[in-house]
């Protein structure tokens, strides 16, 4: 099998599924890359849980402002039309079902869409941040991840053994091998790398998958 997607190519694929006019929260780390790979012509507003709507890219040198950081505590900018608000309002947006899509990383996703992404259970010092609120309230939860861990263990599993972030909350997993939707019938492969046999994908997954009748090849351009 060739052509396993890199981080930017997964981000590109996630970006295709974010409709024009969406309000989106991107998690810290790999999901932040989605902002660099949005389709032309779509107006998508990013929410940062520390009180920003209309968050823009990192500032030019000399334009940095310590009072303007993102959820990852990195310096960012505000786009025209953006706004600021306090934390209780920010999480009213999140918990109250006003965020269309959040994109998060994962340690494990179960076949019923449970997500474990905040602690390995072995951390000296765990941190939860806004992840539990985001998965409780966002209309759709996209997970962006490698299909297996560094050791080759599946991340899509029968049941999560790691502490949960939320139950039955994941809508879709975008991995380096496939796009998998989670619904009442368990995980369904919507797209997979064309030269990856379904059996091989199944081998790298810890729970039975179903291949959608109308499945498509996962095609992502080579990005710089």
């Amino acid at each position: 099998m060739t052509g396993r997607l890199g981080r930017d190519r997964i981000a590109w694929r996630v970006g295709r599924d974010i409709p024009d006019g969406s309000f989106v929260n991107l998690g810290i780390g790999m999901p932040e890359l989605v902002a660099n790979h949005l389709p032309e012509g779509r107006e998508i507003v990013f929410q940062s849980e520390n009180g920003i709507l209309g968050m823009g890219p990192r500032p030019e040198p000399g334009e940095e402002d310590e009072e303007l950081v993102n959820a990852g505590k990195k310096l960012v900018t505000l786009l025209p039309g953006g706004s600021f608000f306090h934390h209780a309002d920010s999480f009213a947006m999140i918990r109250g079902g006003h965020i269309d899509i959040c994109v998060l990383g994962a340690f494990q996703v179960s076949r019923t869409g449970d997500l474990a992404n905040w602690t390995t259970g072995m951390d000296a010092l765990p941190g939860v941040g806004g992840a539990m609120d985001l998965v409780a309230g966002s209309k759709r939860v996209f997970v962006m991840t490698t299909h297996t861990t560094r050791n080759g263990d599946p991340k899509i599993v029968e049941e999560c053994v790691l502490p949960l972030t939320g139950k039955g909350c994941v809508s879709t997993v975008y991995s380096d091998l496939a796009v998998v939707d989670f619904g009442p019938d368990g995980p369904v492969v919507r797209e997979k790398l064309e030269d990856l046999d379904f059996d091989e994908l199944q081998d790298r997954t810890g729970t039975p998958l179903r291949l959608a009748n109308d499945w498509k090849p996962l095609e992502v351009p080579i990005l710089d």
């Binding site: 849980e49 934390h87 209780a88 920010s90 999140i94 918990r95 939860v128 539990m132 609120d133």
Partner: peptide, 13 residues
């Protein structure tokens, strides 16, 4: 240490 989800922390306050 008491760990609290961020939105729950804001709303408890």
């Amino acid at each position: 240490l008491e760990l609290v989800p961020q939105g729950t922390l804001a709303e408890r306050i």
